[in-house]
Design a protein around this nucleic acid. Structure first.
Lengths: 131, 131
DNA sequence: CTTGACCTTCCCCTGACTGGAACCCTTATC
DNA sequence: GATAAGGGTTCCAGTCAGGGGAAGGTCAAG
């Protein structure tokens, strides 16, 4: 399988697949013409990576998860720890974004949005830190 | 005022302040020794930028907002548009993260987290796309 | 034989900084 | 006057996870 086929089948851009080879996440064979030659196993790995990435795991997390995936003697506790740590980070990020959202919602609601210069959004931003 | 004083007063790292000068967001004067010499007005600008950044606005948004802030003939509608567009992006991000969170929460709850290899998290990640 | 689609490597670009090196300036102390 | 600490300055490289695009090799069809 050439990279284009793999790309359509696993849903990752060819660029991304090359990058994953670059950083050692996959190691496809090479044909005589120099083209990458992917086996089903490589495709499966790439699907795994794609799925993990859509769940927001970092590349380093993916590396760890992949190693655990391929280690038949793993402890599920190790997997769970990676996932739970990641989950916590996501929850933190959500909380941060929700704080921004709430403030912004208030400000946007308070702004007339007309052609006059008076604007509570700018008023908030321009407030002195002490105030 | 030297950069260190400004840094403590506006809460931005000196590195960040230098960066903001680099990209033209502030233009402090220079003393004879080559040191940046900040006026109250510069400090105020930097506070504005810091506040806008904590609300998640991009640097380009900040540039726009700053220009509006300094334009006495602005229309509040223009400010509101920037804020609302940004708000929409934040809401999208929250939705994405919540989807991740929900999936991860399910998976983490389903994982025994013991020393056996069986793991629903890895099972999910390793699933074929068709499945 | 040529066209077009595919593949290769290579390098630069992103956003918003952060870290660090190498060097200059100021102030206090001895 | 020497020196050391603690400012400041510039510049270069790195972060994360790829994306864009150039220059060139390969392959299948007409």
């Amino acid at each position: 399988m050439n990279i284009g086929d793999v790309s359509t089948r696993c849903g990752l851009p060819a660029k991304t697949i090359r990058y994953y080879e670059d950083i050692g996440l996959v190691t496809p064979a090479r044909g005589e013409n120099g083209y990458r030659s992917f086996r089903e196993q490589d495709l499966h790995k790439l699907s795994f990576l794609g799925r993990a990435r859509t769940l927001g795991f970092t590349i380093e997390d993916c590396r760890t998860l992949m190693a655990l995936y391929e280690d038949e003697t793993r402890a599920s506790a190790d997997v769970k720890k990676v996932a739970r740590d990641h989950l916590r980070k996501i929850e933190d990020k959500i909380a941060d974004l929700e704080a921004m959202r709430d403030t912004l919602t208030h400000l946007v609601d308070a702004c007339a949005g007309d052609n006059r210069p008076d604007c509570p959004i700018l008023k908030d931003l321009g407030q002195d830190l002490a105030g």
